[in-house]
Amino acid sequence: MTNTISNDLVLLTIPMRRDMELAAAQLASVIAESMSFNEQQVEEIQLATIESCINAFEHSKSPDQKVLTEFIMRTDELEIKITDQGIGFSPDNHPKKSNSKPDLHPEMRKRGWGLEIVHALMDKVQIMSNKNGTTISMVKCKNET
């Protein structure tokens, strides 16, 4: 864990409804800008937040149909936790949406990119999942470009 001077927390619960991931992304943007992340980092944080929320929307089958987003502001990093109370998943049972047409090029597949995008855009990603729900914890460090 990196040094922290302050540890401020912002919470937002969003319903699993169309475009509600934008509410989390907008809050992520406001927080990241307030922490002086650069423009590209802010966009990366927004996109990772969107993909994590969509992952919960599509796959969690959460009975309460809600996603809790937590933004933990530290001096040198922002941690975002996206939590649902769904059925959990592992790479083995992570379903792919089947409404896409078959891929012409396997390397340019159409679905199943969400978590790969999150891993690519954030500095640290941890996924904790069990039958009671899933939390994706992702960290963006200020000193990374």
Partner: peptide, 8 residues
């Protein structure tokens, strides 16, 4: 902003 469904 673009999400992965839009990209697909």
């Amino acid at each position: 902003l673009i999400n992965s469904i839009g990209i697909s």
